Amino acid sequence: MSGNGNAAATAEENSPKMRVIRVGTRKSQLARIQTDSVVATLKASYPGLQFEIIAMSTTGDKILDTALSKIGEKSLFTKELEHALEKNEVDLVVHSLKDLPTVLPPGFTIGAICKRENPHDAVVFHPKFVGKTLETLPEKSVVGTSSLRRAAQLQRKFPHLEFRSIRGNLNTRLRKLDEQQEFSAIILATAGLQRMGWHNRVGQILHPEECMYAVGQGALGVEVRAKDQDILDLVGVLHDPETLLRCIAERAFLRHLEGGCSVPVAVHTAMKDGQLYLTGGVWSLDGSDSIQETMQATIHVPAQHEDGPEDDPQLVGITARNIPRGPQLAAQNLGISLANLLLSKGAKNILDVARQLNDAH
């Protein structure tokens, strides 16, 4: 009898209710805020589980004197976190989706994509230029951005401005803007500013005609071990179906173009009346040469937790077992079709030249 009692006690200790789920994140304040929001949602869904947040620095956090596009290494903000995932030191990792490459290392998958916040870019102005827009900034004003995508589009749109690289986390960039006289304004992701509670610093939100956004911008991705079915089931509740389908289309477009950090590629997606609209573009580094096109596809946005595919093969690095396969494939095909259209119009040449120029500098 006593033996059975011990077995029952052991089973209770090993039951999922007692389990601590370890969540990996970057150390920056924004990353911690984003991770806290994901953990809060998981806690609400699984009140019996405990969650421990483990923060670590990544290569991208450490190399702050070089433009991201020049470092010449993929997975700048993800490699150390993936290493911890691989060694079973954490069970899942919360990322900004735009930091996750469209091809993940073997053994990993994006197990959830959370509801997207505003994906557009924002302009934050130096205190002396508050009330201005990019259009009304004085001639030769210097605007800071760490992104080739932003610089290429904005140089084309605002030729009277000069664009220079600015690195560091959000706090560091804002301090550089406010305390030094080098920059009249800087460009940042609206979602990051909003998550930090800095709505009052948003001086201008850039519309798609001015600057399309990065693939996955404004959404959070939760990376897990691809074979860890328990954790895949656990994080599945975080999937937002519309965000998922938009981001599958965007990531398929980028992957098929073979774009990345070192080339200016941008997108804009919208879901309306059962249609998914995808606009994508590529630019030369100075913005003088560009190709942009829009395509659409009829896609039914499923309700969360309709029964999805059981075999769960990944699409552009994403596993969404609780979302039907048909809409996911339709979104992926839309991204591939748009990429093929741009490639047929000469996108590869623009991107190759951009890559060579970026590598040469």
Results as ranks from 00 to 15, higher is better:
residue 355 R to T: 05
residue 136 T to R: 11
residue 89 E to M: 08
residue 302 P to Q: 05
residue 290 S to C: 04
residue 176 K to H: 09
residue 48 G to Y: 09
residue 46 Y to W: 13
residue 40 A to F: 07
residue 48 G to P: 05
residue 252 A to R: 03
residue 321 R to G: 13
residue 265 V to I: 11
residue 71 I to Q: 15
residue 106 P to M: 06
residue 323 I to C: 11
residue 305 H to Q: 13
residue 124 V to G: 05
residue 337 S to G: 11
residue 210 E to P: 01
residue 166 I to C: 12
residue 298 T to R: 13
residue 342 L to F: 15
residue 223 E to T: 07
residue 167 R to G: 09
residue 292 Q to I: 15
residue 264 P to L: 05
residue 32 R to D: 05
residue 292 Q to G: 08
residue 308 G to Y: 01
residue 90 V to G: 03
residue 99 D to S: 01
residue 107 G to S: 10
residue 72 G to M: 09
residue 115 K to H: 08
residue 94 V to Q: 05
residue 207 H to N: 05
residue 62 K to S: 11
residue 196 M to Y: 12
residue 262 S to L: 01
residue 282 V to Q: 05
residue 224 V to D: 01
residue 43 K to S: 10
residue 91 D to C: 05
residue 209 E to L: 05
residue 333 N to K: 14
residue 256 H to N: 05
residue 34 Q to V: 06
residue 232 L to H: 07
residue 42 L to Y: 04
residue 98 K to R: 01
residue 317 G to E: 01
residue 135 E to R: 13
residue 199 H to S: 13
residue 267 V to C: 14
residue 87 K to E: 10
residue 212 M to Q: 03
residue 230 D to K: 09
residue 97 L to Q: 01
residue 159 P to L: 10
residue 140 K to E: 14
residue 208 P to F: 14
residue 56 M to S: 14
residue 239 H to E: 05
residue 206 L to R: 03
residue 201 R to Y: 15
residue 117 E to N: 06
residue 46 Y to V: 14
residue 308 G to T: 08
residue 39 V to S: 08
residue 348 K to L: 14
residue 354 A to E: 13
residue 120 H to N: 12
residue 240 D to V: 12
residue 49 L to D: 08
residue 334 L to V: 15
residue 57 S to V: 13
residue 28 S to Q: 01
residue 31 A to I: 01
residue 223 E to V: 05
residue 169 N to H: 11
residue 310 E to Y: 01
residue 321 R to P: 07
residue 280 G to P: 01
residue 105 P to W: 08
residue 21 I to D: 01
residue 263 V to D: 03
residue 46 Y to T: 10
residue 129 F to E: 15
residue 95 H to I: 01
residue 307 D to C: 10
residue 223 E to A: 03
residue 67 A to F: 01
residue 241 P to C: 14
residue 212 M to P: 05
residue 101 P to L: 06
residue 247 C to V: 09
residue 308 G to I: 14
residue 329 L to F: 11
residue 282 V to R: 01
residue 211 C to G: 07
residue 165 S to F: 07
residue 343 L to I: 01
residue 319 T to L: 01
residue 221 G to V: 03
residue 199 H to A: 10
residue 58 T to C: 12
residue 21 I to G: 01
residue 72 G to D: 07
residue 177 L to R: 04
residue 181 Q to W: 10
residue 152 A to D: 04
residue 34 Q to F: 04
residue 95 H to Q: 11
residue 218 G to D: 01
residue 30 L to G: 01
residue 356 Q to M: 01
residue 75 S to I: 09
residue 72 G to S: 13
residue 330 A to T: 10
residue 174 L to S: 06
residue 214 A to Y: 01
residue 135 E to K: 04
residue 71 I to G: 09
residue 301 V to R: 09
residue 258 E to C: 15
residue 351 L to D: 14
residue 250 E to L: 01
residue 188 L to E: 01
residue 21 I to A: 13
residue 291 I to W: 08
residue 313 P to C: 06
residue 109 T to P: 01
residue 114 C to Y: 06
residue 104 L to I: 13
residue 53 I to Y: 13
residue 63 I to C: 11
residue 104 L to R: 07
residue 29 Q to Y: 08
residue 302 P to N: 01
residue 177 L to P: 01
residue 273 D to N: 15
residue 34 Q to D: 03
residue 94 V to W: 01
residue 207 H to P: 11
residue 248 I to H: 01
residue 148 L to Q: 11
residue 153 Q to R: 03
residue 307 D to S: 08
residue 200 N to S: 09
residue 284 S to W: 05
residue 20 V to S: 15
residue 32 R to P: 01
residue 75 S to L: 11
residue 349 N to A: 15
residue 162 E to S: 06
residue 339 A to E: 01
residue 243 T to Y: 01
residue 106 P to Q: 11
residue 23 V to L: 10
residue 121 D to P: 03
residue 342 L to R: 01
residue 41 T to M: 14
residue 105 P to M: 09
residue 97 L to V: 12
residue 249 A to M: 01
residue 220 L to M: 13
residue 324 P to R: 13
residue 291 I to L: 11
residue 310 E to Q: 15
residue 119 P to M: 01
residue 286 D to Y: 04
residue 242 E to G: 03
residue 174 L to C: 12
residue 78 T to Y: 06
residue 351 L to S: 07
residue 317 G to K: 01
residue 285 L to C: 06
residue 44 A to K: 13
residue 185 A to V: 09
residue 157 K to W: 05
residue 115 K to P: 13
residue 281 G to K: 01
residue 302 P to S: 05
residue 48 G to L: 13
residue 69 S to E: 12
residue 359 D to E: 11
residue 222 V to Q: 01
residue 133 T to L: 09
residue 43 K to E: 09
residue 62 K to L: 05
residue 315 L to R: 04
residue 138 P to Q: 14
residue 144 G to T: 09
residue 74 K to C: 05
residue 342 L to P: 01
residue 132 K to Q: 14
residue 357 L to W: 01
residue 314 Q to D: 01
residue 234 L to S: 03
residue 63 I to R: 10
residue 154 L to P: 01
residue 297 A to G: 10
residue 284 S to G: 11
residue 230 D to F: 01
residue 324 P to G: 06
residue 239 H to C: 10
residue 136 T to G: 10
residue 216 G to M: 03
residue 64 L to H: 15
residue 61 D to A: 01
residue 320 A to T: 12
residue 331 A to T: 08
residue 299 I to H: 09
residue 85 L to I: 07
residue 295 M to Q: 05
residue 110 I to H: 04
residue 328 Q to E: 13
residue 156 R to S: 13
residue 40 A to W: 10
residue 237 V to P: 14
residue 332 Q to I: 01
residue 107 G to F: 13
residue 298 T to V: 13
residue 351 L to M: 14
residue 26 R to P: 01
residue 28 S to E: 01
residue 172 T to N: 12
residue 101 P to S: 10
residue 40 A to Q: 07
residue 53 I to V: 11
residue 82 E to D: 10
residue 311 D to R: 10
residue 93 V to L: 09
residue 270 A to Y: 06
residue 70 K to V: 13
residue 241 P to A: 06
residue 186 I to C: 09
